[in-house]
């Protein structure tokens, strides 16, 4: 009797033990990519700042305070104040919102437009492919930042135009990636299978093949998010796109740059650090994703 009870218990215990060890195995798998985890945590922190930051700050990001200009960091103003007496911490927090929004919009815009175009030209080929790929080659000849600069100055200085400009500059990356994937996918047998059951060609391209072509573009999307932050801040630093008094990291670094010699380091250090950390985190996550995907393929 006791032996049957034992065996029953054993049977009942087994599945939970397996699932726990599987769970631990998954965790262990990800701990082999510590930088990836670090990047994810930093981005999560930024997202928390985006969501809760503005309701936790007590100052306004744009209203000047003549009583305390260029103030050293103290308990009231942990990051100090700028030349108009605005709290740097508050401005960094509000800028996180703007810069992250720009990054995500740029990444999703260039991803969706680029992947769609890459899918179409890769699947159908022909003259359209030739024309679009030549245009892409020309765009690749310029650094993305220079291209974004040119487009912004042509369109005018608004947040919307900055997003359009940077997204345009990065769209060729996605066209090229997706096109390359589609070129190999369209020779796969399941493409033929899709045709032979009666799919029209647009369904073969968009529904059967495109979802299988997106993996490298998803990695690229993370990397582009990081680059977009650098570019948006870079444009603002040069006085293009987003202009003062908007709270934006690049604008703030630009204001701080005038203070480097006079010694007010807090004006430029904190927004600068925010840019570096954000771009760094997105790049770590992108590289980590690429490593994880190649590791899982093996």
């Amino acid at each position: 009797m006791s032996s049957t009870q034992n065996s029953i218990q054993n049977i009942e215990i087994k599945p939970s033990v397996i699932s726990r060890s599987e769970f631990l195995g998954k965790i262990r798998f990800f701990t082999r990519f510590p930088l990836f985890i670090f990047g994810i945590l930093v981005i999560l922190f930024y997202l928390l700042v985006v969501i809760f930051g503005p309701s936790l700050t007590v100052y306004d990001p744009t209203i000047p305070n003549p009583q305390y200009t260029l103030g050293q960091p103290n308990s009231d103003y942990p990051f100090g104040t700028d030349k108009f007496g605005r709290d740097i911490l508050t401005r960094v927090v509000y800028a996180t919102r703007l810069d992250l929004m720009i990054a995500l919009l740029v990444a999703s815009l260039s991803f969706s437009i680029g992947s769609l175009m890459g899918c179409i030209v890769g699947y159908y080929g022909g003259w359209l492919d030739k024309v679009i790929m030549r245009v892409v080659d020309v765009m690749f000849a310029f650094p993305a930042f220079i291209l974004a600069m040119a487009i912004t100055s042509a369109l005018g200085d608004t947040v919307q135009n900055v997003i359009i400009a940077i997204a345009t500059a990065y769209t060729p990356y996605f066209i090229r990636l997706t096109r390359g994937e589609m070129l190999t996918l369209r020779t796969r047998q399941y493409a033929d299978a899709a045709i032979s059951v009666g799919n029209p060609s647009w369904r073969v391209a968009l529904i059967h093949l495109l979802p299988n072509a997106l993996t490298p573009s998803l990695v690229q999307m993370t990397l582009v998010s990081g680059w977009a932050i650098l570019d948006a801040a870079g444009l603002a630093f040069l006085g293009l796109g987003i202009t003062p008094p908007t709270a934006e990291w690049g604008v703030m670094v630009s204001e701080g740059a005038q203070r480097i010699i006079t010694g007010e380091w807090w004006v430029w250090l904190y927004p600068g650090a925010a840019i570096v950390l954000a771009a760094f985190a997105f790049n770590l996550v992108g590289d980590g994703l690429r490593d994880i995907m190649t590791r899982e393929e093996q």
């Binding site: 047998q189 033929d192 299978a193």
Partner: peptide
């Protein structure tokens, strides 16, 4: 031709290749 395709079909050599991995 597309509507005629229901009358003639094919079974491919390698089932690993002929099924869409995301379907």
């Amino acid at each position: 031709l597309r509507s005629w395709r229901r009358f003639f079909q094919i079974v491919f050599q390698d089932p690993n290749e002929s099924l869409n991995p995301r379907f």
